[in-house]
């Protein structure tokens, strides 16, 4: 049963973010709108210490440490936001809750955004963040990569890049509705079936997003680092997908799981009923707490 809080979030998402994506808003206007919406997300509680000292070469990053004795576990979290913007407060609050539930430290990376810094700038920042964590002495078997939406895409791309470069892989990956297919996509499936049902996303301006993210290099849309759904998943660590049955991105997760399982990678998918895109970060809904508990369970299972 979908809670009334989530139903409200569905309606608000439909009236705000979905409308903004359907209309030809400039990136600046979209960022302004998101800043206004961000005021409704709470600040992280005092039991989580936030350290902004250790930056990356080209972008900001934060360490989140729970006061209640974190274990060796570390979560590298990559925020979503269509590669052009981000819900900074919401993502920070989400990561704080996940760190608390999993007794882990969190690394939140504010990778460079398009159109100012098109692909591969954001992915390079994520790779640098991962390498920095390893260099600080964290064992890869204690490390998890997580990401929502565009962050999920970057998380998958990062896994592929790490594997290709023979850098030690993390213990697992948490992928929440990753936007893993940057091609025009099939003419059937969730992108068509859920076009009306999706409470947040609309692909009417998909071309614009592609153009802004890739700059002039639109031929890269089939590259696995851009569309990880097309990648070879052999050798990747366990992956845990959460997605909603009403999202246009449902098939992205399904296809990734199929490809991963086909080459023997343990990949799980949870398909939630009628959740809005990125519901894990909507702290006022009970389903968000449940999803976070399940993500923490997965972390504990793969890093005891």
């Amino acid at each position: 049963m979908v809670s009334w809080q989530t139903r409200t979030a569905n309606l608000l998402g439909r009236l705000t973010i979905r409308q903004a994506l359907k209309r030809e808003l400039s990136v600046t206007d979209m960022r302004k709108q998101i800043l206004r919406m961000e005021r409704f997300f709470p600040d992280v509680a005092d039991d989580i210490h936030i350290d902004t000292e250790l930056r990356l070469t080209h972008c900001d990053a934060e360490w989140l440490t729970p006061a209640s004795g974190p274990t060796e576990r570390v979560i590298l979290h990559l925020p979503g936001g269509a590669f052009m913007t981000r819900f900074q407060r919401a993502e920070r609050f989400f990561l704080a809750r996940l760190c608390r539930a999993a007794h882990a430290r969190g690394r939140l990376v504010f990778y460079r955004l398009a159109p100012e810094d098109p692909y591969p700038a954001g992915l390079d920042d994520c790779l640098e963040a991962y390498q920095q964590i390893l260099d600080s002495g964290v064992a890869p078997e204690h490390l998890f990569i997580s990401g929502i939406s565009a962050g999920g895409c970057l998380a998958l791309a990062l896994l592929l890049k790490l594997r290709d470069r023979r850098i030690p892989l993390p213990a697992g990956a948490l992928l929440m509705s990753p936007a893993a297919d940057f091609t025009d996509g099939p003419e059937e499936g969730s992108r068509v079936d859920n076009a009306r049902l999706d409470a947040v996303l609309s692909l009417e301006n998909g071309d614009q997003i592609r153009r802004l993210y890739l700059g002039e290099r639109t031929e890269l849309i089939t590259h696995p680092y851009v569309s990880p759904v097309l990648g070879d998943y052999a050798g990747l660590p366990p992956m845990f997908f959460q997605v909603s049955n009403s999202e246009i991105l449902l098939d992205d997760s399904r296809c990734c799981v199929e490809r991963a399982r086909a080459v023997g990678v343990p990949a799980e998918i949870e398909i939630w009923d009628r959740m809005p895109h990125g519901w894990q970060a909507l702290s006022f809904t009970p389903e968000s707490g449940r999803a976070i508990n399940r993500l923490a369970d997965f972390i504990r299972e793969h890093c005891p």
Partner: peptide
């Protein structure tokens, strides 16, 4: 099971 479904309780 390859996929799990959450919700749809009623």
């Amino acid at each position: 099971l390859p996929a799990r479904y959450l919700g749809q309780s009623r």
